[in-house]
Structure formats: C-alpha cells, structure tokens
C-alpha cells in the first residue's frame, strides 16, 4: 500500500484512548501537526504488544506547535507516529 501522507501534510492524531499499549502519547492525542518526513515502515506497536502479527505501515515524524498540544508554549514537539494514528487535517485547523 502506498504511504498515505507526505512531508508537509497536515494531519490530525486520533483521540482514541485504547486499553492496550500504544505509542501515541496521551499529550499528542487529537492534535493537528505537520508531517516532517517518513521514518520507515514498521509493524504497528499496538498489535505487537498484544501478540498480534502486526500490520507493517508507514511511521512519520510529525511536528506539533506546543500551543496546539498544551494551549501555550513557543516550542515545537516532534513525535514519531504510525499511520494508523493519523487522519488528514485542514492545516488551518478547520476540520471538525
């Protein structure tokens, strides 16, 4: 399957709060960031932690403005996220 996102794309992270292990940190849930670059393809950690085969999918560096994560701050935080955690977002934050 081709990668869903490319550098520069605006993405919104999932708001789901799974009961299992996930690598989408809580502070980065439901936030809009921008894809910096592809970081390879790896089995989804959420699957592997549950003993499932784990679908291999794209992992991206996604950069967030601190204000979009915490409500304030002038720094940036780049998190490494599996494609499963991401949906396309309007860069202006206009998507519901």
């Amino acid at each position: 399957m081709p990668d869903r996102f490319a550098p520069g794309d605006a993405v919104r992270t999932s708001t789901a709060d799974p009961t299992w292990h996930t690598r989408l940190p809580r502070y980065a849930r439901g936030a809009v960031g921008r894809v910096v670059e592809l970081a390879g393809h790896h089995p989804l950690a959420d699957d592997r932690a549950r003993g499932l085969p784990g679908t291999t999918q794209a992992v991206y560096h996604v950069r967030f403005a601190a204000a979009d994560l915490f409500g304030d701050g002038d720094h940036a935080v780049t998190v490494e996220l599996w494609e499963d955690y991401l949906e396309p977002a309007d860069p202006s934050g206009g998507t519901p």
Binding site: G40, D74, T78, E80, L81
Partner: peptide
C-alpha cells in the same frame, strides 16, 4: 532561539 523537542516514541 526556537526549541524543538524530539520524542522517541517509535522506532527511530
């Protein structure tokens, strides 16, 4: 000076 934090949350 801007500060960029990198969270090693996956494989890198």
């Amino acid at each position: 000076t801007r500060i960029s934090v990198w969270d090693a949350s996956a494989e890198s």
